[in-house]
Lab assay of single mutants.
Amino acid sequence: TYVQALFDFDPQEDGELGFRRGDFIHVMDNSDPNWWKGACHGQTGMFPRNYVTPVN
């Protein structure tokens, strides 16, 4: 499953995934309602669910 970033996200903690608005992120785990795990630009980490939108 892929999502697209609605906003820039700069990691604040180790293990978070940084990205820029418009980036596509491969979702690896969406079991938590607020923080998902994904991959983008060769990196993996957690990111806030409300920063992304589903891609059809």
Results as ranks from 00 to 15, higher is better:
Arg21Asp: 04
Val52Tyr: 02
Gly22Ser: 04
Thr1Asn: 08
Gln4Thr: 11
Asn50Lys: 14
Met28Pro: 02
Pro33Leu: 11
Asp23Leu: 00
Gly22Phe: 04
Pro54Arg: 11
Trp36Asn: 00
Gly22Asp: 05
Trp35Leu: 12
Ala39Asn: 10
Asn50Ile: 08
Val52Met: 01
Tyr51Thr: 05
Ile25Val: 07
His26Ile: 11
Asp23Ala: 05
Pro33Met: 14
Asp23Met: 05
Asn56Ala: 13
Gly38Asn: 01
Phe47Val: 03
Arg20Ser: 11
Tyr51Asp: 00
Phe24Lys: 14
Val3Leu: 04
Asp32Leu: 09
Ala39Leu: 11
Ala39Glu: 15
Asp10Glu: 15
Asp32Gln: 10
Glu13Ala: 11
Trp35Cys: 10
Thr1Val: 05
Leu17Tyr: 01
Gly15Val: 09
Gln43Thr: 10
Trp35Thr: 12
Asp10Val: 10
His41Cys: 09
His41Ile: 02
Trp35Val: 12
Leu17Val: 06
Asp29Leu: 02
Gln4Glu: 12
Pro48Trp: 04
Phe47Glu: 02
Trp36Gln: 03
Gly22Cys: 03
Leu6Cys: 11
Val55Asn: 03
Arg20Val: 09
Gly42Tyr: 06
Gly15Leu: 06
Trp36Met: 09
Asn34Tyr: 09
His26Cys: 13
Pro33Gln: 10
Val55Glu: 10
Val52Cys: 12
Pro33Gly: 13
Tyr51Ala: 12
Lys37Pro: 00
Trp36Arg: 01
Asp29Tyr: 04
Gln43Val: 14
Thr44His: 07
Arg21Phe: 07
Asp29Met: 04
Gly15Phe: 10
Asp8Ala: 04
Asp10Trp: 10
Pro48Gly: 03
Asp29Trp: 03
Asp32Lys: 07
Pro11Gly: 14
Met46Asn: 11
Pro48Thr: 02
Phe19Asn: 02
Ser31Trp: 04
Thr1Arg: 07
Pro48Met: 06
Leu6Gly: 05
Val27Glu: 01
Phe7His: 15
Asn56Ile: 08
Gly45Thr: 01
Thr53Asn: 08
Asp32Ala: 07
Met46Arg: 13
Asn34Ile: 12
Gly18His: 13
Asp10His: 10
Gly38Val: 01
Met28Trp: 10
Asn34His: 14
Ile25Tyr: 02
Arg49His: 04
Pro11Val: 04
His26Glu: 14
Leu17Cys: 03
